[in-house]
Amino acid sequence: MTTAISVSGLVKTFGRTRALDGLDLTVEQGEVHGFLGPNGSGKSTTIRVLLGLLRADSGTATLLGGDPWRDAVPLHRRLAYVPGDVTLWRNLSGGEAIDLLGRLRGGLDPTRRAALLERFELDPTKKGRAYSKGNRQKVALVAAFAGDTDLLILDEPTSGLDPLMEEVFRECVAEARDRGTTVLLSSHILSEVEALCDRVSIIRAGRTVETGTLDDLRHLTRTSVDAVLTGPPPRPDYVHDLTVDGNRLRCQVDTEQLGALLAELTAVGVRSLASRPPTLEELFLRHYENVSDAPSTAAVR
């Protein structure tokens, strides 16, 4: 696999605010890459650097083998972008906006355009000012999916979509991947990321704190254990959030200590045992919440 997006040590400051603080991001060709982070962590700033709208202060960024600032125009022929908050021209109809946005990068497939309008249930004759937030989002999505592009950059693209349309969106991303398109998907909707993404990068305060496949990330974190034993449970000091209620034990354990815990539990005698890998939510919350230990410890674990 070759690399579609390669960013390293990216720094961008706005006045005294350090929006990007040495961010790294690698997206391989043909993958759907989830780009996660709390509000204000620098996701949109990264994307705007990749689109050549902002100029980075330092660090390197390569997009489809080119420089996103210098080669913006030829690169943009090969990519489509959906912002999280689409604003349309008040006096252009949705259909006109779709065609215009498509033509600005070299044209749309008319058959696919028609099919997408149908699937997203979008009326293209309304004027820009008459669309709701979700429908404005659909205009940009149809324009993006109806073209043949090497790369889709989607910045929280489903904000405002209802669950049915969210489903259509997932199908469209899957179809794009099947055509060989690389997708960078910035999102807050974890089920969406879980369903679509091959790999994810989690950023915080302008820095990448985790990157890898979902399995990798799960492996790096703690498993929840809920066991009912035949006797009084042990109280090992390497587990976290331990609660003991009679013969019942609940705790979280780092993956490398899971074997040791199971050995201790079987030594007492197990009546029932449930262990659950961490959900993406838990993974997330850990990174979003722990301000102090996030960048350093996450990298070590």
């Binding site: 021209w89 006096n91 252009l92 109809s93 259909g95 006109e96 906006a97 779709i98 065609d99 215009l100 033509r103 600005l104 293209p124 004759t125 309304k126 004027k127 000012r129 008459a130």
Partner: peptide
């Protein structure tokens, strides 16, 4: 409000055409 066309006229194909329209 009146509905607009479902597709753009062939001329609305570049940034200059958009500027003229606006």
């Amino acid at each position: 409000q009146r509905p607009g066309p479902a597709a753009a006229a062939p001329g609305l194909a570049d940034a200059a055409a958009l500027a003229r329209r606006l």
